[in-house]
Structures are given as structure tokens and as C-alpha cells.
């Protein structure tokens, strides 16, 4: 019997985090349909909010996150400053990485989102480095790396899991299984439908969870994070969810069965949780409305902040390659 870690204050936090992520990404969708407003690829995790919120909420400040191309939820759940995050996604000078990351390569070391990699499957080998540093320094933190079911096909993921298993690193592997790798369905790109079962091969615990049930995600994350923190080694968690939009915003999902999309729409983690909180009397309609409006207000303010910032000036294009650049 798993321990239920959920208390009402936490429930409200989980809801706020998910709705903020949803509103934030909905705004990106809207802006990306306007000309020249959102340069670059916009890769969103609409419908997957419960995974990011549930797991990141189970972490301590000293824990390190390695993210991927669908990173907005991880960053927002971690409490990244909304304004500089939106400005970065708009590739502006006031962005958290000075407009050099864009939406895909966000890194916010201030909140221990150490780095993101959009090279699919590159997160896990980077994460063994971070987790090794924690083990080496005898620090209390653990590392969490998020990757998708598509990334699970990369050899680098195997290398990282094996090494983490051999060295017993404090590392939680989180597979966000959203049922799609590009335009390929899970059964077309993955030999097994249960990626968490691979944990056996690396002598680590592996468990799966309904990734659209934020409390279930949170409870399992608390359990596995504690395991990793105890020094016993790595663990693998698979959260089953669904990619509600295309791979990126240019992808019109012509290959997706609309009936399947409707089924998953009905399982929307936010709608589901809102209903639960109403049923349980944790929040009433008016309170929900206030929270939702507050999220929208914050997102609009962030866009205004981004709009006011210029693009980075030409003088920064050649900087930041090296700490100690060649003198010539």
C-alpha cells in the first residue's frame, strides 16, 4: 500500500502549477500563429502537465533537473521566473539565457534546472554526470532526468542506465511516455509497451503510473525520490500520458486518429483534477476561477515583459563560446 502524501495545501499548489503551465503554453500556441512573434520551433507538452508538476513538486531545492525539448512544464513547476522565461522563448535579450537558448535549450541553473538537451536521448548521459557530482561531493541532492518514449530507443539511454546502475548513482530516470515519437506510434517504435520494465536489466526499481493523475504521479515520485536519496541507487519511473498537440506547432497531426485524441482529451489531467478538488470541497468554483484568472494575468504580464525587451544585440552573438576565449 503506497503512502498518500497529499494534503490540501499541496493539492492547491499542484492545481496552480498545472493551470499555469497550461495557460503559458496556450499563450505560446496563440502567439506562434501570429507572424514573427515566436521564432523557432515551438514544442509543447499540452496534456502532459501532471507529469511535470507531480514530479517536480516532489523534489527539494537542492535536487537537479535535466530536461528536454518539452521543458516548459518542468521549468514552471520549479518556480522559474515567468517573465524571463517567456522573454527567452520569444528569444529576447531579457530572456533567462539572453536570447541564446530560445524555447528549446533553456537552462536555469539558479533553480537547478541544470540544462536541457534537444538531442533526443542526450539527457540521461548528462544526468549521470550531475548525479555523479552529487555522489562525489556527498551532497544530499539527487538528479532527475526527463526523457520521452522516443528517447528510450536511443543507445545513450542504455549506456546511462547501465552506468547509473553500476555506480548506484542518486538518479531518477523519468520516462514521459506520451505515446508518440514524431509521427510514430509507441507500438511502431518500441518493442515493449512498458518501458519501466527495462529497469530490471539495470538492477533498479522501475514503476509506472497514470501520468494524467497528478496525485498518483506525485506519490510515486516521492517514493522513488526517497529511494534515490537513500543512496541505494537509481530508479526508473514511467508516466503514461498523451501528446495532445503535434510534435511541434508546425505539425498538424494528420496521422493521428481523432477518436483517440478525443479519448485522451476526456482524460485531461487538469479538468480531471479540477473536478476532484470541487467534489472533495478543497476548492469552490469561485476560487478556481480566481486561480485560473491569476495564471492568465501572470502569463499576459510575461508576454508584455517579453514584448518590451529587444532582441539580443549583435555584440552578444560572438560571446559566451568560451569562459576563456582565445586572445587573438
Amino acid at each position: 500500500m503506497k503512502k498518500n502524501q497529499i494534503v490540501p495545501n499541496l493539492q492547491i499548489r499542484l492545481y496552480k502549477s498545472m493551470i499555469l503551465t497550461r495557460k503559458f503554453e496556450e499563450k505560446i500556441v496563440a502567439l506562434s500563429q501570429e507572424p514573427d512573434r515566436m521564432p523557432g520551433m515551438q514544442i509543447l507538452a499540452n496534456g502532459q502537465e501532471a507529469v511535470a508538476t507531480g514530479i517536480v513538486s516532489a523534489l527539494k531545492p537542492e535536487d537537479v533537473i535535466i530536461s528536454n525539448h518539452r521543458s516548459h512544464g518542468h521549468l514552471l513547476a520549479r518556480g522559474t521566473d515567468l517573465n524571463s522565461l517567456m522573454a527567452e522563448i520569444m528569444v529576447k535579450d531579457k530572456g533567462v539565457n539572453g536570447g541564446k537558448a530560445g524555447t528549446l535549450h533553456l537552462s536555469v541553473p539558479d533553480v537547478n534546472v541544470l540544462m536541457t538537451s534537444t538531442v533526443v536521448g542526450a539527457g540521461p548521459p548528462l544526468a549521470i554526470g550531475a548525479a555523479f557530482a552529487q555522489q562525489y561531493k556527498r551532497a544530499k541532492g539527487i538528479t532527475v532526468v526527463f526523457f520521452g518514449d522516443g528517447a528510450a530507443a536511443e543507445g545513450s539511454v542504455h549506456e546511462a542506465m547501465n552506468l547509473a546502475g553500476v555506480w548506484k548513482l542518486p538518479l531518477l530516470f523519468v520516462c514521459e511516455n506520451n505515446c508518440w515519437a514524431g509521427a510514430q506510434r509507441l507500438e511502431e517504435h518500441c518493442a515493449t509497451q512498458h518501458i519501466f520494465q527495462r529497469a530490471k536489466g539495470y538492477d533498479m526499481p522501475g514503476q509506472n503510473v497514470d501520468g494524467n493523475d497528478v496525485e498518483a504521479v506525485y506519490n510515486l515520485a516521492v517514493e522513488l525520490v526517497e529511494y534515490c536519496r537513500s543512496g541505494k541507487g537509481p530508479a526508473l519511473m514511467e508516466a503514461l500520458t498523451y501528446r495532445m498537440r503535434g510534435h511541434g506547432e508546425q505539425d498538424r497531426q494528420h496521422y493521428v486518429d481523432l477518436r483517440e485524441l478525443a479519448i485522451w482529451k476526456a482524460k485531461c489531467p487538469i479538468r480531471r483534477y479540477r473536478q476532484k478538488l470541487l467534489n472533495d470541497g478543497v476548492l469552490n468554483q469561485a476560487q478556481i476561477k480566481t486561480i485560473d484568472q491569476d495564471a492568465e494575468t501572470r502569463v499576459s504580464a510575461a508576454v508584455a515583459f517579453g514584448d518590451e525587451s529587444p532582441y539580443p544585440g549583435p555584440e552578444t552573438a560572438l560571446t559566451d563560446v568560451f569562459v576563456q576565449p582565445p586572445s587573438a
Partner: peptide
């Protein structure tokens, strides 16, 4: 063995180890 680490035959993991650990302040 804490500071001299034999690894599996995994070049991507070895290089990833270096990138991740250096970003955390170590000198791999």
C-alpha cells in the same frame, strides 16, 4: 576508487559524465 573510476565500455556515457559533472563544478 572514489577518484579513479573505471567505466563500462560506454563512450557516450563517459563523455556525458564529463559534461554533467563539469557543469556541477567538478573537473573531470
Amino acid at each position: 576508487p572514489r577518484r579513479v573510476k573505471d567505466t563500462p565500455v560506454s563512450e557516450a556515457a563517459i563523455a556525458g559524465l564529463a559534461v554533467g559533472a563539469s557543469c556541477m563544478g567538478l573537473r573531470p
